[in-house]
Amino acid sequence: MRIDDLTVRYGAFTAVDGVTLEIPPGRIVGLVGESGSGKSSVARAVSGLVPHTGSVTGASRIQMIFQDPYASLDPRMRVGDSVGEALLHLPRRARAAEVTRLLGMVSLPPETAPSYPRELSGGQRQRVAIARALAADPDLLVADEITSALDVSVQGSILNLIRSLRDRTGLPILFISHNLAVVRYVCDEIAVMHRGRVVEHGHTVDLVSSPADPYTRTLLEAVPRLRR
């Protein structure tokens, strides 16, 4: 999966300026940056939600998981129906079985299927959103700030889930976050975005231990740390 010279413009404003990025199979590539850096526009362009120039090759079934699990599930649709919407080609019984399997993949019991989103916690909803994305049998998963609307105690389990999905399915994931500590924990590689461009891209360990770009260094220094 490769993004080549991706550019997104909103009117006269260039949000993403010629981004080239490769996401190898079975790897999680993190995209970090501050608000306005263009990272969410990359996510939306790759997912086909905003018009863009440049090419996205090597992936045709791209699915995105959104930041706010309270907004990304239809409040008037049962969880099972939401997940099953990608499976309309299956007969009813097979679809129900597949929904159960997908809910199991995100560690939700089958009893979750008939409930409505409002009955679930934020973490459970985010799991449903992930199951819905997996239902479409994606060849690339785009995760846009998927834990920033969640509480810290829940964040851990969602991050663990993302890592285990990569380990179990080999699904490449583009993981977008403003939180460097989260990206460092989850991702195999990190790309740093600043003002619409990727300023640095490298393996997580290398990039965190020896950042080459001054902006990356600024970001790393700003991460709050517990005094030990």
Binding site: S121, G123, D151, V152, S153, V154, Q155, G156, S157, L159, N160, R163, L180, A181, V182, R184, Y185, T204, V208, L220, V223, R225, L226
Partner: peptide
């Protein structure tokens, strides 16, 4: 809370701690 929060020193080989259930 402290152990579930990833920071720049978290061991990436281990699963992150999380608190089961909800408040």
């Amino acid at each position: 809370l402290i152990s579930s929060l990833p920071d720049m020193d978290t061991d990436r080989a281990l699963p992150l701690a999380s608190i089961p259930g909800r408040q």
